[in-house]
Design a protein around this nucleic acid. Sequence first.
DNA 1: AATGAATGAGTCTTCATTCAT
DNA 2: AATGAATGAAGACTCATTCAT
Lengths: 196, 196, 196, 196
Amino acid sequence: MRSKDNTKEKVILNTALAMINIEGLSGLKISDLAKQAGLATGTLYIYYQNKEAIIKRLFTYVVEQVTLDVMRGITSNITLKEKIRIICMNYLHELIAYPDYKVFVEQFLRSPYSKQEDKEILAISTYLEPVIHLINEGSEQGIIKKTDPFVLIELCRGSLENYAHQLLNTGNAITDVEFEMVFEFIWDGISIHQKQ
Amino acid sequence: MRSKDNTKEKVILNTALAMINIEGLSGLKISDLAKQAGLATGTLYIYYQNKEAIIKRLFTYVVEQVTLDVMRGITSNITLKEKIRIICMNYLHELIAYPDYKVFVEQFLRSPYSKQEDKEILAISTYLEPVIHLINEGSEQGIIKKTDPFVLIELCRGSLENYAHQLLNTGNAITDVEFEMVFEFIWDGISIHQKQ
Amino acid sequence: MRSKDNTKEKVILNTALAMINIEGLSGLKISDLAKQAGLATGTLYIYYQNKEAIIKRLFTYVVEQVTLDVMRGITSNITLKEKIRIICMNYLHELIAYPDYKVFVEQFLRSPYSKQEDKEILAISTYLEPVIHLINEGSEQGIIKKTDPFVLIELCRGSLENYAHQLLNTGNAITDVEFEMVFEFIWDGISIHQKQ
Amino acid sequence: MRSKDNTKEKVILNTALAMINIEGLSGLKISDLAKQAGLATGTLYIYYQNKEAIIKRLFTYVVEQVTLDVMRGITSNITLKEKIRIICMNYLHELIAYPDYKVFVEQFLRSPYSKQEDKEILAISTYLEPVIHLINEGSEQGIIKKTDPFVLIELCRGSLENYAHQLLNTGNAITDVEFEMVFEFIWDGISIHQKQ
DNA sequence: AATGAATGAGTCTTCATTCAT
DNA sequence: AATGAATGAAGACTCATTCAT
């Protein structure tokens, strides 16, 4: 007897992600997903209990990925501003390299699948913890504005996401100069500085 | 003969908007919509050709509303910064007063309904024109950074949207102080100023 | 108060006939019929109880017409063969001038509308009586084969109908020569004669 | 895995045929057809794309059957008259054994389903070719009237069909004597002979 | 484990009929 | 009588899930 093939789970998730990016979450059909993943419909049900399970697993999968990627390259021997610049850069790269992620998460959060407040899903918000920690640190040091760190994060995230969206739409690549401009926008927005 | 009730079209749209906000665009069922709107299923088909027509009309309807509301209160005798503050405030209020709008637009743009590039729909992007004009003006006067105005708008929009999202999530109201902080973030981000 | 407009009934029937000829009996929609007839939907229901009533009335209407037209020109001072030639000619002309009639009757008889053996409708088979009378007369005189006259009539009718169908399909007009050939076919078929 | 059951296609067609004979083509409902065929609604859609596909396939199916059956027993060592007698007999038997065929074809040709001139369907008219060939042969030999063979075929077909209709209506069986009479009618109609 | 045929509940849409004006 | 907007039952079709192989 063959045992459950572990790579198949990943294949299913990645295929689902790609298809949702094209057709939308509501357009995802199990039979299409199976075909696209090179499996039979029934096989999907061996790996996941049902459609809902696939989609919820996809969410945690994506969030795990992003969390890991965003913190890549953060070491202790660099300045706070540098750390935030790296996080922003990482996140921007992530948004551009895997636009499917954002598309999916956005749709997931608006979909009936996320309304049931699964504990597993809620637990995820902890993935922001390292970032929040950084911001609090900055506030204490008088470098970053003293405000609810969640608000600041959302402001930054919004900017980066809409900027990435803009880049993807126009097909332009990120230039160092433009990224510097964006980061300046963000840093100017969150840091304490002297007005002109 | 009962005469064709002109308000019904609006009732249908508003009901649809409210329902999409709760159940998502893909969860919208014509029979539920009819019931909720106090009509028979068949009646919807008197006012709109089919489900797709309702949803597309809803999009233009929402965009029209937002465009109008956002520019409210802009007069010529105030400074550029003031104008942008008002626009931000208007948009923030809009986002909070009608969160359905953003929810719907986001879902619509990801849905199969928006893929067909209807001319009518594309024509809408012109609703940003007055804002772009303002930004260009500011750039020429050396007040606003000299960058693609679309990029700047997206950065600001992202911040406001994520901030509004945050407010809605926590249930907090906007305070003057916090709005001032947000606007400062934005203004600092787009304007030219002396670094600390 | 205006009284029921008698011409409207005819307009409804004729319009229905024309539409059935194009779209088929099953394709007939009351609202289309009303529009085409220049009336409101509701108005049809003043003149006929429901769709079924319209269609059944149409059947008796068509049968009355055909019965009248087919016997036109039959006088007592002509030979039996001549009478039958005229009847054939009349019927052929009818088939070509009003192809709607045959289309409708054929469809009606196959439709759910005719299954309920309405007495009124069954009574119609009497419209063949004069023709049967003629055939019996011919049999007694040793001119026409001694067989069930209904069988003979069906044989002739089938030939004429399929011939008319052929003419309508090709768009050709009846020529005297060809009609003579067809009538010869029929007369040869029903009359007693010497074989070659 | 259950393997795709090839007989199901036939079961669906035959069930459809029987149901159309009773309720008419326009009365055919997919859900009833499925139930009657012992299948779930969805299963029909595995074998046929949609209702239209079922009905069109039914047409080619019926025509294939009739073409085969009508030419059964035709060998080269019999006279022309004998061949035509056999064809007539075969067609008559077909009409009586499978009255559904004629009922369906008649309704199909009047229905919206046949208006789109599918090539596949048009190609079918070739099924008359062997008969036309026979008639032309007879004409050249001076046995059969020199007329458009299509016209002659339609005349004969009309007679046989109306005669079969008569038999089915009365519930009588074909007797040799009566068939001989009918064939005489036809043969007298198409052959060249001496008048009385 | 793997397959994909089979299932049937759930949707959109049509259209005969009714009814307020 | 006339109108046509409103109704809702009925029908075609989809697709998540099950099940026989």
